[in-house]
Design a binder for these strands. Structure first.
Lengths: 253, 253
DNA sequence: TACAATTGTGTATTTAGTACACAATTGTAA
DNA sequence: TTACAATTGTGTACTAAATACACAATTGTA
């Protein structure tokens, strides 16, 4: 939460630097301990969480803006990022507007503007991320997808839309390279798919299909030390993976 | 092309009415005589064509803006419209900016602003459309997709991107209801698919597959009067069609 | 050393996709 | 009137992909 002075300072700075009416919101997916995670922010004295987001600098390509915003929140560069939808309902920022409405009159308040927000989703390696709050929040943290808190504004809708998009993408693009560590076992990868889809898959059929895509390499040695039978380790074959990313899996018509 | 006075008038009006930095561009697909058509606009004294587009009114949802813009260009209401991408390169409007740069200094010229454009594609019944030029053009006409003229700005990219999206959509959504007349024959529908995909399909397999979707009704009587064997007439089963639109064809995982 | 948990692997069945050929209808030209 | 070209309707065999399902091997623990 900004103080009035900070708000005034920010509005001045925003008007100079950023494009009016445009924001970016990102749904950042991670995967940890068999759970899908989403990176969220929160104000100490508020209940609702919100998505990492920001604005577009006047001379900045929007892709670059999304990358910059996520670098600030995660510490990561070169994130897998995909634009998926623009949310442009004039009512969508009503609540946000109200939030600072008592501090500044609308004509001085940058947040009183109408904003269209461009939705991006990101897939990142959970362990590589160092969550960093932004200047409006005190908390930036991974939240469990099974246990999503209530979100501000239309961020619930944006999240749902991102998840739907991810589920569709799963059908004709490889997913996993950005979410899994370098080496992983087949059951671990399967768990990722099951978690995204919220659906059990057959172990044997999953393995056959995913190997059929030709995007995995199996290490010589299985993972040792754990309980039970030692599973083989796999890693993504970057060449095959990138080929599959551009070509897609299915022929269709 | 606007005169200087018209440009000044328009800039004043635009600043009052429209959101800054945002535009909408539409790729309108039609189908006629076995050819895919795209609705384009042109200035009399210019070579390059451009996509029907416009701006978003300050209190207007973006979907509604896209509909309004297309109603002005086609006369049609309730068009099948789908947002597919935002084009946000800061250089994308360079050429446009230059176009009016000799008339007005940048600070007065609405077109000198940076614009992000939201791309929509539309599928419409060719016969229902009455092409209407906008205030910047003298020509609004269907152009053959086989014989696309050069387009202004990044409109070539936007068009290509829309076509790619349409081709992907074809794999998991029914297409045709918005492009075909009420009744049509199987070969006519096949021609639509072949034209979109730019690829020959097997008659028998096409029929089996498309009928398998359960989105078509066959009329009792075949079409009479033409040369050759009288083909059956089909129409879309609206219920099945809408179900397929929301559910999609393929299970995937 | 038996057991529970987990992993690796194979096969039969069903479904979807592909390839391909012949018979029927209709107008036109001989 | 009749052969012909063009087009439509229909079915079957083959292949590939998806699904359903079961048993053997490994490892730590009781």
């Amino acid at each position: 939460m900004l103080t009035k002075e900070e708000l005034i300072e920010f509005c001045k700075e925003a008007r100079e630097s950023y494009l009016d009416h445009i924001s970016i919101d990102c749904v950042v997916f991670g995967f940890h301990e068999g759970q899908m995670k989403v990176l969220l922010l929160k104000n100490k004295d508020e209940e609702k969480w919100y998505l990492p987001g920001g604005f577009v600098l006047k001379p900045e390509p929007i892709e670059m803006a999304a990358n910059r915003i996520l670098k600030e929140r995660t510490g990561l560069d070169e994130i897998f990022l995909q634009q998926f939808h623009v949310f442009g309902d004039p009512d969508r920022s009503k609540v946000h507007n109200d939030m600072y409405a008592d501090m500044l009159p609308p004509e001085e308040n940058w947040f009183s503007n109408r904003f269209l927000t461009i939705g991006y989703y990101a897939l990142v390696d959970f362990f590589e991320v160092t969550p960093q709050p932004d200047r409006f929040s005190e908390v930036c943290a991974w939240r469990d997808m099974e246990d999503m808190p209530e979100l501000q504004l239309d961020h619930g809708l944006i999240f749902k839309s991102a998840l739907d998009t991810l589920r569709v993408q799963l059908n004709y693009q490889p997913i996993g390279y950005n979410l899994m560590p370098k080496e992983f076992t087949m059951p671990e990868l399967q768990k990722l798919y099951e978690t995204i889809l919220d659906k059990k898959l057959d172990r044997r059929n999953f393995q056959r299909r995913i190997l059929g895509f030709g995007i995995l390499n199996r290490a010589e040695q299985p993972r040792k030390g754990g309980a039970h039978k030692a599973p083989y380790l796999y890693s993504f074959d970057l060449e095959g993976y990138k080929h599959a990313l551009t070509e897609g899996f299915k022929g269709g018509w």
